[in-house]
Design a protein around this nucleic acid. Structure first.
Lengths: 212, 212
DNA sequence: ACCTTAGGTTACTTGCGAGTATACAGTTCA
DNA sequence: TGAACTGTATACTCGCAAGTAACCTAAGGT
């Protein structure tokens, strides 16, 4: 630690205290999410996490009030990244299809990273009542954003007509699934996976004449 | 119970004993899988399952040796249905694309039913070592079948060229996801969901000239 | 010099739920 | 009639991991 603040002076503490606390909180989350992804939430004890950080369990309780909060913070970090991308996709101009494609690519990339992976591995029965409600709300928000983007595209003709809800879930499923199979050490980079998946969804499985 | 065997006679027991035992075993699985899907595996105690069947926990242990076995049998039932469909798809003649499409539709339908739902809700860290190995093996078998079907289609030109592995995972993800969002009481029938999802995957998101 | 607070520890409580020991009733078959 | 087995219940053990109590230390402000 002792990573100093803006000016590097021995008189660390003023506003830096808060920053240091935050950085330790983050460290707990980063460590916890790896365990959750590797072993599952229930199979991970806070002692595991503590040990990995060379501290003890009560220390963790100094930063979080319970295990639930830790899990929720993990999924929140993943979900908020995606939600921000949804909002960006709506704000941008241009044909809906292009905005959708950009969004999908971003979504896919999140799914190759720890917090994104945690989102799809977490089912709401693992969370307490209040966290579960927030978790669901965030997911719904994202899904509605995706679906409305699809609807827009169907309206403006840049997307093929169909059932927007099913299409949105199909896209979400294909993208979420990346979190379940992607391995960084495998042959493909995250970017390649994202590009290929998005291309498959956009163009479909059967051949198509060169012109898009 | 007392549902009798082939001939309806009061002398029930001979070969029927085994059948009755089997039917009770099945009842445990059907009840358990509903709980697992509704509340999650860890959040479901065997007392819950027992109570729902109006028996007690030791009775369940009379049919299964542990909780693990119950979960594994649930996912096995789901997975084997899919695997059989894979094999059928390989055995059939005709262009690979058609066989793939049939297989996808069947896969999608399984994902609307209890045991199929359980498959995608179960992550391997919930299983013991031996069950986990079998679970993974079954899933791999299915995925390899799917991927080889895709490769075949790319070779014979009935599918667009691309990275067969990514395509297979994209398809699997979209189909698996059905288990996470489909609700029978919602507006769409299982068949409609299957047809729409498959159509989206086959044709892609962007418009296409009428001729396939 | 002293009080307070933050960050940490050791050692505990506690509850839940998986799994078991044991007993008992009914049925089959010798 | 009675041995053996099957299916079920009651009442227990037991371990694990979440969460807590109580205590320690060092640093900052005054």
């Amino acid at each position: 630690m002792r990573q100093a603040g803006s000016t590097s002076s021995p008189w660390v503490s003023r506003r830096d205290r808060a920053a240091e606390r935050q950085s330790k909180r983050d460290a707990v989350l980063r460590t916890a999410v790896r365990f959750f992804n590797a072993q599952g939430f229930h199979a991970t004890s806070l002692d595991d996490v503590a040990r990995a950080l060379s501290v003890t369990k009560p220390t963790i309780y100094h930063y979080f009030s319970n295990k639930d909060e830790i899990l929720f913070e993990c999924v929140r970090l993943g979900l908020e990244t995606i939600r921000d991308a949804t909002e960006a996709a709506h704000a941008d101009g241009g044909p809906a299809r292009d905005r959708l494609e950009t969004f999908m690519r971003e979504y896919a990339l999140v799914m190759t990273r720890d917090f994104g992976i945690c989102v799809t591995r977490t089912s709401d029965d693992q969370l307490g009542d209040e966290s579960r409600a927030k978790f669901r709300a965030l997911k719904r928000e994202i899904n509605e954003g995706l679906q409305s983007l699809v609807e827009e595209g169907m309206r403006d003709g840049s997307l093929a007509p169909g059932n927007a809800q099913v299409v949105a879930f199909t896209v979400a499923g294909a993208l979420n699934w990346i979190a379940r199979w992607y391995r960084p050490e495998g042959g493909l980079s995250a970017q390649q996976v994202a590009d290929n998946t998005v291309a498959t969804l956009i163009h479909g499985l059967i051949p198509r004449a060169p012109a898009s």
